[in-house]
């Protein structure tokens, strides 16, 4: 989805993480911790891990610091708050008879360097009040802003749309 090429090789840590993630998915889907289920899950996760291979380099964007889980929680709290806000916003616009919208395409810049971080930022922006990521290229994101303030440039749009998320995401992603 993003145009920057991934780094050439995946580190051993990325393999372990990929394995754990697919095993977690397996356990959630089967919903049981019986021995035979888990053994089968480990086998399948190994296959998935090797099938993914170098693509696991995507996970190198993660920051492996002790505080990272806390930052992740802080981001999740902020994200769900924004998601609820955005729904009130959409509800107000959809129900009001005059359709109060002033759509505009604006560009914002991101300081996140990893593909994973940019993808999370783009997804977060899509789900927050009145904004939709249209295109992501290098460090620029093209945003469809449903209620743009007139005459906003790159800097002010970045502050208004991306800054809140970027500051929180940068705690656990590069």
């Amino acid at each position: 989805m993003l145009s920057t090429p991934a780094p050439a090789s995946a580190s051993p840590g990325a393999y372990v993480l990929g394995f754990c993630a697919s095993l977690l998915t397996w356990v959630l889907l089967t919903g049981s911790l019986a021995t035979d289920e888990v053994v089968l899950g480990i086998a399948v996760s190994l296959v998935v891990m090797f099938a993914a291979g170098q693509r696991l380099a995507l996970l190198s964007g993660l920051r492996m610091t002790p505080l990272a889980p806390l930052h992740l929680l802080r981001y999740l709290g902020y994200f769900f708050g924004q998601l609820a806000l955005s729904n009130f916003d959409v509800a107000r616009r959809v129900v009001s008879p005059t359709l109060p919208i002033h759509p505009e395409l604006v560009e914002v810049r991101t300081g996140l360097t990893s593909d994973l971080g940019r993808m999370l930022l783009a997804n977060s922006i899509t789900l927050t009040p009145g904004t939709l990521t249209v295109e992501a290229e290098d460090d620029r994101l093209l945003i469809h802003w449903i209620d743009s303030t007139p005459g906003s440039d790159l800097e002010s749009a970045t502050r208004a749309i991306a800054a809140g998320f970027e500051q929180r995401i940068s705690g656990f992603l590069k």
Binding site: L83, S86, N87, V90, A91, R93, V94, L99, I101, P103, T126, L127, G130, T131, L132, V134, H144, I146
Partner: peptide, 14 residues
């Protein structure tokens, strides 16, 4: 909503 981008916005979030 009047155009596809606005429709995506309303549809996805809600």
């Amino acid at each position: 909503m009047p155009d596809v981008y606005n429709r995506i916005q309303a549809g996805t979030k809600a």
